[in-house]
Design a protein around this nucleic acid. Structure first.
Lengths: 303, 303
DNA sequence: ATGTGAGGCTAAGTCTACCTTATGCTCAAA
DNA sequence: TTTGAGCATAAGGTAGACTTAGCCTCACAT
């Protein structure tokens, strides 16, 4: 008896019909036809093997058994719905982000407080890792990535270009004033990614420059190089946009006016299928506005 | 968010997968394919908008949300199943019968104790009414009816033929010994249904007999006439099978040896769709056996 | 290192079950 | 008597569920 569960539409139809004492009203609630309700109630009775409604000419009344199970089913439906609603709420209350360490440390973290202030119901979980984490697989909701802006299955919002320029502490500026000329030896070591230095020189017309001798300590991330530069340990290369706050506060200054463009950009990316997600939309709109403001500030800073 | 409930198969698939931590094992439990489980879990995630499983190369693990809702769903499923199982049990524990008053009073009620003894878990609710009640509409599970045995949508089990003969108390027998001859006036009034008396005389070759003067009190049911006959108030006409107990106990005796046959019979009838019902099957088998025994006893009684 | 099998994903095709539409029936109220 | 409300039923269309088949990845063996 009762080998396989009756179908949910049948149970739902019966539950609504029992609550209203009418197939027609149940049909309105379920936005379907009375015929459908009739079909499903009969279906349920057939599967369970117990008559639930007694049919009279123009009304239906519950049988003893129908009377017994209807309230239980109503309660179960409420629980079922609540379970999913709670899950959605909990899920929408926590945005899980993954970003590159430098971006997260230098740019995002200082601004996150403002997001929290604006959206008190959304908590942020931030993962900072060098390798791009899979998003949309359950672990992370969205990411900030550096690249061309084309990822299949993902929507991307452009934040600002990925550019870099030599940066150093104000105290060191005069010591490295010849940084633009690769032939001149500096009084301070270079910091930051060697490939960026190479690219920076190349964009200024200096090809095949050998910089291997000029580097100081090799650090793991750009923001660590920046911290070293702030401490006066050398001249690093990095994004004036990411370190705009340090530049604004004059902890860092451009060691040279030329800004190289990597041709790439920073993007906020999220799965296309989650376009509807409230928390993602909220963060997207917020970070886009923050980036625009940062772009504007940067423009005025460099003017 | 969450406009319409996710489908039950999807929830079921997820619940089983969560319990086993494996789509393949869940598929075995649900006796379906892993592909189906995969499809349904994805379906559920799509409808709810929350990732529930993280897919790895050859295993899946629950996400935080999946972990949260899985046990709730397991409990809800158990409740849902229990609700229906209880309803079935309650329903199967009470057999609702409708029968003709005379049959119920004279034949069925004295025997019901034996059924209860044999099936302690099935309670009997007996309705006795002159008009044939609808069965299979929720109110009554089965009926004992008198007729030809052909009712559409119903299964019928023949119990015994519908026959009738004059019956009176032993004390009155000599006073009504000429009952077989309609021209002889009796010292006692006739009881019971006039049409049966007419039919009885007709089957013995006496046509157009006027009996209107010969009746005593008109009672509403045959068993009341039988009671009156037992009290010596007259000679009634009724079924020697239904009143076999009274005949056996010599409260009643045949006033004449001829037994008229109505051409009809008593049948136990129940909806064809409920062939599977345990309680109906139990009662059917029991009443068939009782009727056979009654038939046998009647045969020996009349020998 | 290289099969091999387990476990999951995906695509395509089939089929079931649900829904709709349309019609008929019964009873109550006008 | 008529009209309308409410349910049942039949027929037909369609979306969604299920199956089948094939592929991919990784673990665990040779």
């Amino acid at each position: 008896m009762l080998k396989n569960m009756p179908s949910l539409p049948s149970i739902h139809a019966f539950e609504a019909a029992a609550r209203h004492g009418s197939f027609a009203k149940a049909a309105v609630e379920l936005s379907t036809t009375p015929a459908s309700v009739s079909y499903h109630v009969r279906q349920l009775e057939r599967q369970v093997g117990v008559p639930l409604f007694m049919r009279h000419a123009q009304k239906v009344t519950l049988t003893e058994q129908g009377e017994a199970i209807a309230p239980e089913l109503t309660a179960l439906f409420a629980s079922l719905r609540a379970t999913f609603v709670n899950a959605v709420d909990a899920y929408e209350a926590r945005l899980s982000l993954t970003a590159l360490p430098t971006f997260g440390t230098a740019w995002l973290t200082p601004r996150l407080g403002r997001f929290r202030k604006k959206h008190k119901d959304i908590a942020i979980a931030l993962d900072l890792s060098e390798t791009a984490q899979e998003i949309g697989a359950g672990r992370y909701d969205a990411a900030i990535r550096n690249g061309g802006g084309r990822w299949t299955g993902l929507r991307s919002v452009r934040l600002f270009p990925s550019v870099f320029m030599p940066l150093c502490s104000p105290a060191l500026k005069s010591a490295v004033k010849h940084v633009g000329d690769p032939r001149r030896v500096l009084d301070a070591p270079l910091l930051g990614r060697p490939d960026w230095w190479t690219a920076w020189y190349e964009q200024r017309g200096h090809r095949g420059v050998d910089l291997t001798k000029r580097f100081g300590t090799s650090l793991q991330a750009e923001y660590l190089d920046a911290a070293a530069a702030i401490a006066g340990q050398g001249v690093t290369i990095g994004s004036p946009l990411l370190f705009a706050d340090d530049i604004k506060a004059r902890r860092l200054v451009p060691a040279h006016a030329f800004v190289a463009d990597s041709g790439r950009a920073f993007w906020f990316v999220y799965p296309a299928v989650r376009e509807e997600s409230r928390k993602i939309a909220a963060f997207r709109d917020w970070i886009r506005a923050e980036a625009e403001q940062a772009n504007a500030e940067y423009a005025s800073l460099m003017r």
